[in-house]
Nucleic acid binder design. Structure first.
Length: 103
DNA sequence: TTTCCGGCTGATT
DNA sequence: GAATCAGCCGGAA
């Protein structure tokens, strides 16, 4: 294994259109079920140097875009992208992950 | 090597 | 339903 980061990126790249995954899910797929927080940090780096990684399909386990910092712009962008992926995103950045979670 | 800090999570209060 | 607590984890300092 290279880095946890690599695993995460690879996994996210596999997420099909119209589906979403939770941080914890990605972390688990990368080998560490509790490293969800780390996933968040990786995502932050991705949205800057995005490679073709559907980072917007990654949200927390509650199906909500919980970004806190000054990433408000990113939040809006994320919900926009989700809608384009045929994913129903509420006005409060909420997604029905129960129906769209990638497995 | 130790310490600290997070875009989290689940359980409890 | 909102707030709090405590694990758990990887990376940077």
């Amino acid at each position: 294994m290279q880095t946890f980061r690599t695993q995460v990126i690879e996994y996210i790249k596999k997420v099909p259109k119209g589906m979403v995954v939770s941080y914890g899910q990605v972390a688990a797929a990368a080998g560490s079920p509790r490293a969800a927080r780390q996933v968040g940090g990786i995502l932050r780096a991705l949205n800057i140097s995005d490679g073709n990684v559907p980072w917007w399909r990654v949200i927390n386990n509650q199906g909500v875009i919980s970004i806190k910092g000054n990433w408000t712009a990113t939040k809006e962008l994320q919900s926009e992208l989700l809608k384009k992926d045929k994913v129903t995103a509420s006005e409060h950045y909420t997604v029905d992950i129960a129906k769209h979670r990638f497995k």
